[in-house]
């Protein structure tokens, strides 16, 4: 994870070539000593483009998923804990957002904003929180009936404290999954946005658009699809490890119980 971030930050120093300079004599050269990951359809060095692309892709992946998870968790928690009118209102908002034709929303945004990495992160984040909200709400609905919550309420603990200390930590499991799955999705959504004129514009590289450009050349330029795909995979796997590590560290009970199951078998 740290390594990925480091590679992205150091891209200018590490990249062997100018990532945006076309060279028509080198179109789709296979990986070699000169171009370790080959060249793309305009003869640009794929390694350099991957390194520069990492900056945008990683930032978009993490920040937009962060935004979506934050909004989703907050609204989901509020809906699940309070129930009643609050729940009904928030969940109908979720319904609305889910069916809303996103393409036209993006077109409308496009008419007002100029594309930048911030717009991209905001757009992906603000349109992607509904799943998290419903997941968190469901957990809250179940957890708030549990003994330890009911007991805290009886003792007179404040609502916020109960949510924060008792329910939320137990409701985070699906959120972690949603985030893990959300990161590659966001990285790919970015390249989808580019086509509206909202994403990162050419010639700048992102993993998503390198992958997209590889589509036409799949039989003769496998390196255009494989390397960005691998990069995304590595990101997801390392994030997954990180997420599990954090959770296990916070929750010593888990390992014990699992240990018990395993030994019993």
């Amino acid at each position: 994870m740290v390594l990925l971030a480091l590679l992205a930050i150091l891209a200018p120093a590490l990249a062997p070539w100018d990532p945006n300079r076309p060279d028509v004599r080198k179109i789709l050269d296979a990986p070699s000593g000169v171009h370790p990951l080959g060249t793309d359809q305009l003869g640009r060095d794929v390694l350099s483009r991957m390194l520069y692309g990492a900056r945008v892709s990683l930032a978009v992946g993490f920040v937009s998923v962060g935004i979506a998870s934050l909004i989703g968790t907050m609204l989901g928690a509020a809906a699940g804990y309070h129930g009643g009118v609050v729940d009904a209102t928030l969940m109908r908002l979720v319904d609305l957002m889910l069916v809303f034709p996103r393409f036209f929303l993006l077109l409308a945004v496009l008419a007002f904003l100029r594309p930048s990495i911030w717009t991209i992160m905001a757009v992906i984040g603000l349109t992607g929180w509904m799943g998290v909200a419903r997941l968190v709400r469901a957990e809250f609905l179940a957890l708030k009936e549990r003994e330890f919550v009911v007991w805290s309420q009886a003792v007179g603990a404040s609502g916020l404290r109960i949510v924060w200390r008792h329910i939320l930590p137990n409701a985070m499991a699906p959120v972690l999954v949603a985030m893990t799955l959300g990161i590659p999705a966001a990285i790919l959504t970015e390249s989808g946005l580019s086509f509206l004129g909202l994403g990162v514009q050419p010639p700048h590289a992102t993993w998503g658009n390198i992958l997209n450009e590889g589509k036409d050349a799949i039989e003769i330029g496998w390196w255009l699809s494989v390397y960005p795909g691998l990069a995304i995979l590595v990101t997801v796997l390392s994030y997954n490890l990180l997420g599990e590590g954090i959770r296990d560290a916070l929750d010593p009970r888990l390992r014990q119980s699992v240990g018990r199951i395993v030994t019993r078998r």
Binding site: L188, L211, G214, K215, I218, E219, I232, L233
Partner: peptide, 18 residues
């Protein structure tokens, strides 16, 4: 299986399809 399902998730549809 963890690696397997994530490989599935990160593999672009069009790539696998082709």
């Amino acid at each position: 299986t963890t690696v397997f399902v994530f490989v599935g998730f990160a593999t672009p549809d069009f790539w696998l399809a082709l």
